[in-house]
Protein backbone atom coordinates (compact mmCIF):
# COMPACT_ATOMS: atom_id res chain seq x y z
CA UNK A 1 0.00 0.00 0.00
CA UNK A 2 3.00 2.29 0.23
CA UNK A 3 2.93 3.42 -3.42
CA UNK A 4 -0.70 4.50 -3.10
CA UNK A 5 0.23 6.59 -0.08
CA UNK A 6 3.09 8.26 -1.96
CA UNK A 7 0.84 9.07 -4.86
CA UNK A 8 -1.78 10.57 -2.59
CA UNK A 9 0.85 12.63 -0.82
CA UNK A 10 2.24 14.00 -4.05
CA UNK A 11 -1.12 14.99 -5.37
CA UNK A 12 -2.72 16.06 -2.11
CA UNK A 13 -1.84 19.71 -2.55
CA UNK A 14 -3.60 19.71 -5.92
CA UNK A 15 -6.82 20.54 -4.11
CA UNK A 16 -5.47 23.98 -3.27
CA UNK A 17 -5.62 25.21 -6.89
CA UNK A 18 -8.09 25.05 -9.70
CA UNK A 19 -7.79 21.60 -11.31
CA UNK A 20 -6.76 21.40 -14.96
CA UNK A 21 -9.27 20.62 -17.66
CA UNK A 22 -9.71 17.03 -18.76
CA UNK A 23 -8.26 17.81 -22.19
CA UNK A 24 -5.14 19.34 -20.70
CA UNK A 25 -4.70 16.40 -18.35
CA UNK A 26 -5.05 13.96 -21.23
CA UNK A 27 -2.62 15.95 -23.29
CA UNK A 28 -0.06 15.95 -20.53
CA UNK A 29 -0.59 12.28 -19.83
CA UNK A 30 -0.13 11.46 -23.50
CA UNK A 31 3.14 13.30 -23.72
CA UNK A 32 6.13 11.13 -24.17
CA UNK A 33 8.31 11.04 -21.08
CA UNK A 34 11.39 11.75 -23.18
CA UNK A 35 9.96 15.08 -24.28
CA UNK A 36 9.18 15.93 -20.66
CA UNK A 37 12.80 15.24 -19.75
CA UNK A 38 14.06 17.29 -22.66
CA UNK A 39 11.90 20.29 -21.91
CA UNK A 40 12.14 20.37 -18.10
CA UNK A 41 15.57 18.99 -17.29
CA UNK A 42 17.44 22.33 -17.58
CA UNK A 43 14.96 24.02 -15.23
CA UNK A 44 15.16 21.28 -12.61
CA UNK A 45 18.94 21.35 -12.86
CA UNK A 46 18.99 25.14 -12.49
CA UNK A 47 16.80 25.04 -9.40
CA UNK A 48 18.93 22.34 -7.78
CA UNK A 49 22.14 24.12 -8.73
CA UNK A 50 20.92 27.38 -7.19
CA UNK A 51 19.80 25.53 -4.06
CA UNK A 52 22.98 23.47 -3.58
CA UNK A 53 25.67 25.49 -5.42
CA UNK A 54 27.25 22.16 -6.36
CA UNK A 55 27.27 21.22 -10.04
CA UNK A 56 27.98 17.50 -9.56
CA UNK A 57 25.41 17.12 -6.81
CA UNK A 58 22.82 19.06 -8.84
CA UNK A 59 23.42 16.74 -11.78
CA UNK A 60 23.08 13.66 -9.58
CA UNK A 61 19.85 14.85 -7.98
CA UNK A 62 18.47 15.86 -11.39
CA UNK A 63 19.11 12.33 -12.63
CA UNK A 64 17.46 10.90 -9.53
CA UNK A 65 14.51 13.24 -9.97
CA UNK A 66 13.82 12.02 -13.50
CA UNK A 67 14.42 8.42 -12.53
CA UNK A 68 11.83 8.75 -9.79
CA UNK A 69 9.48 10.56 -12.17
CA UNK A 70 9.88 7.82 -14.75
CA UNK A 71 9.04 5.13 -12.20
CA UNK A 72 5.90 7.02 -11.17
CA UNK A 73 4.99 8.38 -14.59
CA UNK A 74 1.91 6.16 -14.91
CA UNK A 75 0.58 7.59 -11.65
CA UNK A 76 0.81 11.17 -12.85
CA UNK A 77 -2.79 12.25 -13.36
CA UNK A 78 -2.18 15.80 -14.51
CA UNK A 79 -3.69 17.49 -11.46
CA UNK A 80 -0.81 19.93 -11.69
CA UNK A 81 1.59 20.73 -14.51
CA UNK A 82 4.40 18.27 -15.16
CA UNK A 83 6.88 20.96 -14.17
CA UNK A 84 5.26 21.45 -10.77
CA UNK A 85 5.18 17.70 -10.23
CA UNK A 86 8.86 17.38 -11.14
CA UNK A 87 9.73 20.36 -8.97
CA UNK A 88 8.00 18.72 -6.05
CA UNK A 89 10.06 15.56 -6.56
CA UNK A 90 13.24 17.66 -6.77
CA UNK A 91 12.38 19.49 -3.53
CA UNK A 92 11.77 16.18 -1.75
CA UNK A 93 15.06 14.78 -3.03
CA UNK A 94 16.83 17.88 -1.83
CA UNK A 95 15.25 17.51 1.61
CA UNK A 96 16.31 13.85 1.71
CA UNK A 97 19.81 14.87 0.76
CA UNK A 98 20.09 17.39 3.59
CA UNK A 99 18.62 14.88 6.05
CA UNK A 100 21.15 12.24 4.97
CA UNK A 101 23.94 14.79 5.10
CA UNK A 102 23.08 15.64 8.67
CA UNK A 103 23.08 11.98 9.64
CA UNK A 104 26.21 11.07 7.69
CA UNK A 105 28.16 14.18 8.54
CA UNK A 106 31.49 12.49 7.96
CA UNK A 107 30.84 12.15 4.23
CA UNK A 108 31.57 15.81 3.48
CA UNK A 109 28.96 15.84 0.75
CA UNK A 110 29.26 19.57 0.20
CA UNK A 111 32.95 19.37 -0.58
CA UNK A 112 32.34 20.43 -4.19
CA UNK A 113 29.97 23.32 -3.41
CA UNK A 114 31.44 26.59 -4.61
CA UNK A 115 31.56 29.77 -2.58
CA UNK A 116 29.16 32.68 -2.76
CA UNK A 117 31.76 34.95 -4.38
CA UNK A 118 32.59 32.41 -7.03
CA UNK A 119 28.91 31.88 -7.82
CA UNK A 120 28.45 35.60 -8.38
CA UNK A 121 31.13 35.61 -11.10
CA UNK A 122 28.61 34.25 -13.55
CA UNK A 123 27.18 37.42 -14.98
CA UNK A 124 26.99 38.11 -18.72
CA UNK A 125 28.43 41.45 -19.80
CA UNK A 126 25.40 42.49 -21.87
CA UNK A 127 25.42 46.15 -22.76
CA UNK A 128 26.63 47.38 -19.41
CA UNK A 129 29.54 49.62 -18.66
CA UNK A 130 32.40 48.33 -16.52
CA UNK A 131 31.05 50.25 -13.51
CA UNK A 132 27.55 48.84 -13.95
CA UNK A 133 29.07 45.42 -14.28
CA UNK A 134 30.90 45.75 -10.97
CA UNK A 135 27.79 47.05 -9.20
CA UNK A 136 25.73 44.19 -10.62
CA UNK A 137 28.30 41.63 -9.50
CA UNK A 138 28.31 43.08 -5.99
CA UNK A 139 24.52 42.92 -5.89
CA UNK A 140 24.52 39.31 -7.03
CA UNK A 141 27.10 38.38 -4.39
CA UNK A 142 24.96 40.14 -1.79
CA UNK A 143 21.85 38.22 -2.83
CA UNK A 144 23.78 34.93 -2.76
CA UNK A 145 24.87 35.69 0.81
CA UNK A 146 21.29 36.43 1.81
CA UNK A 147 20.04 33.25 0.14
CA UNK A 148 22.72 31.34 1.98
CA UNK A 149 21.43 32.69 5.28
CA UNK A 150 17.76 31.84 4.63
CA UNK A 151 16.10 28.77 6.08
CA UNK A 152 15.73 25.81 3.71
CA UNK A 153 12.03 26.47 3.18
CA UNK A 154 12.48 30.21 2.65
CA UNK A 155 15.32 29.55 0.23
CA UNK A 156 13.23 27.12 -1.79
CA UNK A 157 10.31 29.54 -1.99
CA UNK A 158 12.61 32.46 -2.84
CA UNK A 159 14.41 30.57 -5.63
CA UNK A 160 11.18 29.23 -7.10
CA UNK A 161 9.75 32.72 -7.23
CA UNK A 162 12.69 34.87 -8.31
CA UNK A 163 14.82 32.41 -10.30
CA UNK A 164 12.28 29.98 -11.69
CA UNK A 165 9.51 32.62 -12.09
CA UNK A 166 6.88 30.29 -10.65
CA UNK A 167 3.46 31.60 -9.66
CA UNK A 168 2.50 31.55 -6.00
CA UNK A 169 -0.03 28.78 -6.63
CA UNK A 170 2.61 26.63 -8.31
CA UNK A 171 5.06 27.23 -5.46
CA UNK A 172 2.36 26.26 -3.00
CA UNK A 173 1.74 23.04 -4.92
CA UNK A 174 5.40 22.19 -5.28
CA UNK A 175 6.28 22.85 -1.66
CA UNK A 176 3.07 21.56 -0.12
CA UNK A 177 2.53 24.89 1.66
CA UNK A 178 -0.49 27.14 1.52
CA UNK A 179 -0.33 30.27 -0.62
CA UNK A 180 -0.48 32.40 2.50
CA UNK A 181 2.57 30.68 3.96
CA UNK A 182 4.41 31.07 0.65
CA UNK A 183 3.60 34.81 0.66
CA UNK A 184 4.84 35.12 4.23
CA UNK A 185 8.11 33.36 3.42
CA UNK A 186 8.63 35.53 0.36
CA UNK A 187 7.86 38.68 2.28
CA UNK A 188 10.44 37.81 4.98
CA UNK A 189 13.06 36.87 2.43
CA UNK A 190 12.48 40.12 0.50
CA UNK A 191 12.69 42.14 3.68
CA UNK A 192 16.11 40.63 4.34
CA UNK A 193 17.26 41.35 0.80
CA UNK A 194 16.05 44.94 1.08
CA UNK A 195 17.70 45.46 4.46
CA UNK A 196 21.00 43.99 3.32
CA UNK A 197 21.11 45.94 0.08
CA UNK A 198 20.20 49.21 1.79
CA UNK A 199 22.78 48.51 4.45
CA UNK A 200 25.51 48.29 1.84
CA UNK A 201 24.45 51.43 -0.02
Amino acid sequence: MAPMRTSTKVMAAGTAVKPMTAEAAEEIAAQDFASIVESHRPQIFRFLLASLRDVDLAETLTQECFLKAHRNWNRFRGDSSAMTWLMRIAINLQKDHWRNRRLRFWRHTQANAIGVDEASDWLPNGERSAEQQIVAREQVAQVWKIVDGLSARQRTVFLLRYVEDRELSEIALATGLSEGTVKAHLSRALARVRAELRGTR
Binding site: R46, L49, A50, A58, L123, P124, V140, Y162, V163, D165
Partner: peptide, 17 residues
Protein backbone atom coordinates in the same frame (compact mmCIF):
# COMPACT_ATOMS: atom_id res chain seq x y z
CA UNK B 1 19.41 43.06 -7.81
CA UNK B 2 16.94 40.17 -8.12
CA UNK B 3 16.98 40.55 -11.90
CA UNK B 4 20.80 40.41 -11.93
CA UNK B 5 20.69 37.42 -9.60
CA UNK B 6 18.42 35.52 -11.96
CA UNK B 7 20.57 36.38 -15.00
CA UNK B 8 23.66 35.20 -13.11
CA UNK B 9 22.07 31.89 -12.06
CA UNK B 10 20.82 31.34 -15.63
CA UNK B 11 24.30 31.93 -17.06
CA UNK B 12 25.94 29.61 -14.54
CA UNK B 13 23.31 26.93 -15.01
CA UNK B 14 23.57 27.07 -18.81
CA UNK B 15 27.36 26.80 -18.66
CA UNK B 16 27.24 23.90 -16.19
CA UNK B 17 24.44 22.13 -18.05
Amino acid sequence: ALENFKVSVDAWSDAAY
